[in-house]
């Protein structure tokens, strides 16, 4: 308990230190934060429920479009936009979850893939509303809380995103530490036995699915607000795959996976895209392969084991 408390605090410290140490890279930091929030939402499904999805960008994208369209057409208040993005994604999550959660494993992966394709095509067709392939443009956000206007240097954007991530992490933490979260881990570890001890497995998974979708939608809304743009890529299969890679890099179901994997991926992407634009995807692939082969369980598990060895304590047992 105390160890997790220290590490939880470390997350907050990192969020505070980043702009002080790298004031010239605030946009990059903000992107890391948004991806961390998105990966965290995915972790709830992949890491804690054991449900692998290749369509999570559907919820991110719906959140992003909702917040963006709301800002253009009705209210440009950031918090209202976040709420709208979360609610819209939650509704889609409720609908999709009801259908998708009848399946598991490969069938589920295929259905999630189909979901994101359908959502993307819908966004594409409704170009009068979404801007279609040109993207949603013309978003101009009001100041946060009516006081802090978004600036050119991205200072307010960073602080705003960091605050949303910190709050999101509080919720995530509460969920995974709760009885509900533990029952999700039970379902991940042995679904038939959970049924045999009387757990309403389908209801639990559906609730987790909606929570995860809502969190993804908030991440999407955040992205739309800080970049003032939404592209069709936000609802793509590629992006769904990328966020899964980020989570696996960091380690799924291990609480901090999103916080390690997402920033590392975003950094590599940014660095390699500059240094070796032709081959950067190859490097990402090599990195992923290295993780899967040499540090299964992701960086969190690997680092945990290293620290364990260094302090002569036993390495972390299993996941969670």
């Amino acid at each position: 308990m105390t160890k997790t408390r220290v590490l939880d605090a470390a997350v907050v410290v990192a969020l505070v230190l980043y702009p002080l140490l790298l004031p010239g890279y605030l946009d990059l930091g903000t992107r890391m934060i948004v991806m961390a929030l998105f990966a965290m939402s995915l972790d709830l499904l992949v890491g804690y429920c054991g449900l692998v999805t290749l369509g999570h960008a559907a919820f991110f994208g719906v959140g992003a479009y909702s917040a963006g369209i709301l800002a253009i057409r009705a209210s440009a208040d950031p918090l209202t936009g976040l709420l709208a993005g979360g609610v819209a994604a939650a509704i889609l999550g409720l609908l999709a979850g009801t259908v998708l959660l009848r399946s598991r494993r490969l069938t589920l992966i295929m259905l999630t893939l189909a979901t994101v394709l359908i959502v993307q095509e819908t966004a594409n067709r409704m170009n009068w509303l979404t801007g279609g392939a040109d993207g949603l443009q013309g978003i101009d956000m009001d100041p946060v809380l009516g006081r802090f206007a978004f600036d050119l240097f991205g200072r307010v954007g960073y602080v705003y995103a960091a605050a949303v991530l910190a709050l999101g992490f509080l919720v995530f933490r509460a969920v995974v530490d709760s009885n509900f979260g533990k029952s999700l881990v039970g379902i991940r570890e042995n679904e038939p036995r959970m049924r045999a001890i009387g757990a309403p497995v389908d209801t639990r998974l559906r609730i987790a699915f909606v929570m995860s979708a809502a969190l993804a939608g908030i991440a999407g809304a955040l992205q739309a607000q800080v970049t003032e743009f939404v592209s069709l890529n936000a609802v793509s299969v590629e992006f769904s795959g990328e966020i899964l890679i980020m989570l696996i890099l960091g380690g799924a179901g291990r609480r901090y996976g999103a916080f390690l994997g997402a920033p590392l991926y975003v950094f590599m992407q940014d660095y390699l895209a500059k240094e070796d634009p032709a081959n950067w995807y190859l490097w990402i692939g090599a990195m992923l392969m290295a993780i899967v082969l040499f540090a299964p369980g992701g960086l969190t598990k690997w680092i945990g084991a290293l620290v364990g060895r260094a302090t002569h304590a036993s390495p972390l047992p299993g996941r969670s």
Binding site: V175, S178, N179, F180, K182, A199
Partner: peptide, 8 residues
Amino acid sequence: GVARLLWP
């Protein structure tokens, strides 16, 4: 009956 609680 406490398995679904978010704030036990």
